[in-house]
Design a binder for these strands. Structure first.
Lengths: 192, 192
DNA sequence: GTCTATAGCGCGATAGAC
DNA sequence: GTCTATCGCGCTATAGAC
């Protein structure tokens, strides 16, 4: 049973700050205050800010996609699987101070301020999610639970865009409650 | 015939910078370089940065909602009106360097870094848009062109969330082409 | 690995001449 | 209204002691 090391604590705090404020309002000083370490010491673990962001994105992407794959591998029906997938985004929005969005939603919005290696990571996260959605939608179409016309990829883009982008909008209006209803209506559109 | 004054030029450049990079990467120095004026002179027109942002949001909101009201007041069918409304967002994404999003989409993402008077303006923009959408959807339901179940307000939130939030996601994947297809599929969901 | 100290830069904002 | 000059701050990053 290993205790949480400093590196992990730094990543935890950085992630929370970005999810709330954005990458350009997350500073080594802010992390320093929360972790209880001097800001110069952070450079021991992550020499440059891009190193920290790359490590953070890799960790986040791994964790998130592992949860998604867990859902896909379950024995649930496609409809339940899709609901559970949407639930991942709902949980992010409603957890803690209720003002956190997906890490890659914030980074996507601030994409033009990121360096190339980070841009690629965000893009990969989006693509990986849409790939999983395509699989899920095809399964649901095969067993007759979803009514999807021709272009499954576009439907996947629609769903992901609504979840990932819509949570940024939902936060402005004040809530995960409204976000939940929107997702429910999306399900009605897709269900046969 | 009045020529474009400095104040307008400053707002134009500031808007472009925010739509591309976000509010926290828009500086008086950047504006200075593009407008061809020293950065100290900008304070003559907008003493504090929040003054500039407030004026910018008011101008943007007025212009955008005037276009929306123009669409609503036209003699088009509800379906055409909705397509034209979606077109406003498509145009933003495909104009210029193809990497601009709605001003209030960026500000919504960075909401937690804004001061209260600005937060209210973003919130009002969202509400005003959803109000117009509710009207449009009710019209379409009345004349039988839209098949919407019970909760028109939720459908409006869904559409606005997909347009406003989805354009942030679409920009990452590379395009207004994909965004256009997503909107087309949304129309298929809504049409009777 | 953590600390103190500091370099070097960009930022928003102000003062005062023209 | 625009300019030059400057202040004070926060930022990323580095150097060197412990």
């Amino acid at each position: 049973m290993k205790q949480t090391d400093t590196k992990t604590l730094i990543l935890d705090v950085a992630q929370e700050l970005i999810q709330r404020l954005g990458v350009n309002c997350m500073s080594y000083q802010d992390i320093s205050n929360s972790v209880g370490i001097r800001k110069a010491s952070i450079h021991t673990h992550f020499p440059r800010k891009d190193d920290l962001l790359a490590a953070l994105l890799d960790r986040y992407s791994d964790r998130f996609l592992r949860m998604v794959d867990g859902i896909l591998a379950s024995s649930d029906t496609p409809e339940v699987k899709l609901r559970r997938y949407c639930g991942l985004f709902e949980t992010t929005l409603s957890s803690g101070d209720r003002d956190k969005v997906c890490l890659c939603a914030m980074l996507g919005a601030e994409l033009k301020t990121l360096n190339h290696p980070l841009v690629e990571r965000v893009r990969c996260f989006y693509e990986a999610n849409e790939e999983r959605l395509v699989t899920l939608l095809n399964d649901g179409r095969a067993d007759g639970s979803f009514r999807i016309d021709e272009d499954v990829q576009t439907t996947a883009s629609l769903i992901f865009g609504l979840l990932e982008g819509g949570m940024l909008v939902a936060r402005v209006r004040g809530g995960s409650d409204q976000f939940h209803q929107v997702i429910e209506q999306l399900m009605q559109f897709i269900k046969v």
